[in-house]
């Protein structure tokens, strides 16, 4: 059988509906690549999304996110729920390659038919991460997984955006990360609905909890007060309580007076993020096609022109290119 037979959108959607894991895997590849087939698959599947509990897990490198995601998945399996996982690792900015090692922390889950895990490289392309990882979450949701988790390193707008697109965002931090927590004030704190001090067997866990609590006290909160938990992902300690907290937040999403408004806000964030990424790509393509960028950059580099006016000129050139395109079509 030639390998391309499952690669049409219809066949993939049919396969995913049937529970065929190979169709699911291939669909994820095409969605990640943002190919025409991938888009068609997403469009067909989207009406079936919204059933899964979607959870974003983010935090700094080394915080224990993969281990925690594995522990959460095991607890979810104990509760009889199937689990889909998207684990994002950074691409090398030099070679664009990546080592995707998250499976190492979840080896036992590989032989569990109720778990499907996919590693994804951030590919560092123009907000493309939120498109591809968000799309992958939608595919797993539509495929019928009860829980869909997406794990990202909490550094950079893209990564935060991905976690933020999930219904519940879990922020993972560690004891002794005081300065780091301080620096989060303006960033991750606002997007997290559940906070976990992982590696809580290390000294300083209670201090870390107190610091988070103090930061939360000065932050403004709507109807949901983010709980702050302690966990030891390696042993699973504190993980049932973490899953309980995620469940409570998901219930809050469904039932609170703000549920409709929160869903609307989430949808707004998603549409804007996707549109911004698409505009970004198209604008740079238009600038490149017109050779508008290089001369401006050269002028600025020689300090013959200031970057702001160069940016304005670039925007003008892009608008002109788009206008010409509009006339042609």
């Amino acid at each position: 059988m030639p390998p391309t037979t499952i690669d049409t959108a219809d066949a993939l959607v049919e396969g995913i509906t049937r529970g065929d894991r190979r169709s699911l895997a291939r669909a994820l590849t095409l969605v990640e690549a943002d190919s025409a087939t991938g888009r068609a698959v997403l469009a067909a599947l989207y009406p079936r999304t919204g059933r899964a509990q979607t959870v974003g897990v983010t935090g700094s490198a080394g915080a224990g996110k993969s281990t925690l995601v594995g522990a959460i998945a095991r607890e979810q399996r104990r509760r009889g729920r199937s689990v889909g996982i998207i684990a994002v690792d950074p691409s090398s900015p030099f070679s664009h390659g990546a080592i995707l090692g998250d499976r190492i922390r979840m080896q036992d889950l590989t032989s569990d038919g109720g778990v499907f895990m996919r590693s994804m490289a951030s590919r560092g392309n123009l907000g493309g991460l939120s498109e591809s990882a968000g799309g992958a979450v939608d595919v797993l949701d539509a495929a019928g997984f009860d829980v869909v988790m997406v794990e990202t390193v909490g550094a950079g707008q893209d990564e935060v955006e991905v976690a933020n697109a999930a219904g519940t965002t879990v922020l993972v931090t560690n004891p002794g990360a005081g300065d780091e927590i301080q620096s989060m004030k303006a960033g991750l704190m606002e997007v997290a609905q559940v906070m976990v001090v992982n590696k809580a067997d290390l000294a300083g866990a209670d201090t870390a909890v107190a610091q988070l609590r103090a930061l939360l006290a000065i932050a403004e909160h709507a109807a949901w007060e983010p709980p702050i938990l302690k966990a030891i992902a390696r042993t699973g300690e504190g993980v049932p309580e973490l899953v309980d907290a995620i469940d409570r937040h998901q219930q809050h999403l469904r039932e609170s007076a703000h549920a409709v408004e929160e869903r609307r806000l989430l949808a707004e964030r998603q549409v804007i993020a996707l549109a911004r990424a698409a505009l970004h790509r198209e604008a740079l393509a238009a600038a490149a096609a017109n050779d508008a960028l290089a001369p401006l950059v050269a002028e600025v580099a020689l300090r013959g022109r200031d970057p702001r006016s160069a940016a304005e000129a670039l925007v003008l050139a892009i608008r002109r290119a788009w206008a010409v395109e509009g006339e042609r079509s």
Partner: peptide
């Protein structure tokens, strides 16, 4: 392989 631009899944 990573340094050659590939995405390498390593499972341990």
């Amino acid at each position: 392989l990573r340094d050659a631009g590939m995405e390498v899944v390593y499972t341990g």
